[in-house]
């Protein structure tokens, strides 16, 4: 039990860091802009007003949350490295894994707050149960982005390449299935080596990337189609991939010289 104390302390410091770096203000601003956009789009729509509002809010809030948290995690970690905060913690009897878990728990609490706020916003345009499902999915999506940000920053140690990697993986994970459909479409040339190789490469990418296209879907909000199957999928896929990313980040952290 005693080894959980430093983890809790690091998590608390991480949350405090979020609170004191005006992250709440930024999150609320993104929420307000997303909600305003949704209402504005609804005012423009001549039919399906609520569907338009739900789709716009879902899209904007999801993207906004991902961007804000990615930048926050990357900046917080860079500051931690530059201020020698990591060196200080690791000079104490705290294992490297404890440090990483503490940071992740802290970021998870911030992600939870963001997911609750944003899912609450979608309640204005969608059934409550669907908003809850969307919020749970957003939380897992944010956790994946947080773990990916930590992993990429431990690998590259600088914000620009780390941010580029996070965005590339995120966008690819969201759109890899579309690439698969296009690659298998009837108008693609058959029996051509480079097309075949490209399709296998896309298939391989789809295997190792999380199926983000099935997480935090706007159609849950618009059509109310989300159910228990989706919730189970989100939790299982989110859990497996989060563990994988944490393990990868741990490998990098254990190899890093401070």
């Amino acid at each position: 039990m005693s080894h959980l104390i430093p983890v809790a302390a690091i998590a608390r410091v991480t949350v405090l860091e979020g609170v004191r770096t005006r992250l709440p203000g930024l999150v609320v601003a993104v929420w307000a802009v997303g909600m305003s956009l949704a209402w504005f789009a609804g005012a423009l729509a001549v039919m399906e007003t609520e569907a338009v509002q739900a789709a716009v809010a879902g899209f904007f809030l999801r993207l906004g949350a991902v961007l804000v948290l990615t930048l926050f995690v990357l900046n917080a970690q860079v500051r931690e490295f530059n201020d020698k905060g990591v060196d200080l913690v690791l000079s104490l009897p705290v294992p490297r894994a404890g440090y990483l878990f503490g940071r992740i728990v802290g970021y998870a609490m911030i992600a939870l707050a963001v997911a609750i706020l944003f899912a609450g916003g979608t309640c204005f345009f969608a059934p409550g149960s669907q908003s809850v499902l969307w919020g749970v999915s957003l939380f897992f999506e944010l956790m994946l982005v947080i773990a990916l940000s930590l992993f990429s920053l431990l690998t590259f140690s600088q914000v620009p390449p780390a941010f580029a990697l996070v965005m590339a993986v995120y966008l690819l994970a969201r759109s890899v299935i579309v690439l698969q459909w296009i690659g298998q479409g009837p108008i693609m040339p058959q029996g051509v080596l480079h097309v075949w190789l490209m399709n296998r490469l896309i298939d391989a990418l789809a295997f190792v990337l999380p199926a983000l296209d099935r997480l935090t879907r706007s159609d849950w909000l618009v059509y109310g189609t989300g159910g228990w199957d989706d919730l189970i999928f989100v939790v299982v896929q989110g859990g497996i991939y989060l563990s994988l990313l944490v393990a990868a980040a741990l490998i990098d952290l254990y190899r890093k010289n401070f």
Binding site: A206, V236, I240, S243, L244, A247, L250, Y254, R255, N257
Partner: peptide, 26 residues
């Protein structure tokens, strides 16, 4: 960087297990 041997075995195990689970799941 420090040598690969500095990474604890349980971390390697966790990484391989999660990768296997991800491939199976997909």
């Amino acid at each position: 960087d420090r040598p690969w041997s500095h990474v604890p075995r349980w971390v390697w195990g966790l990484a391989l297990l999660c990768l296997g689970l991800q491939l199976l799941f997909h």
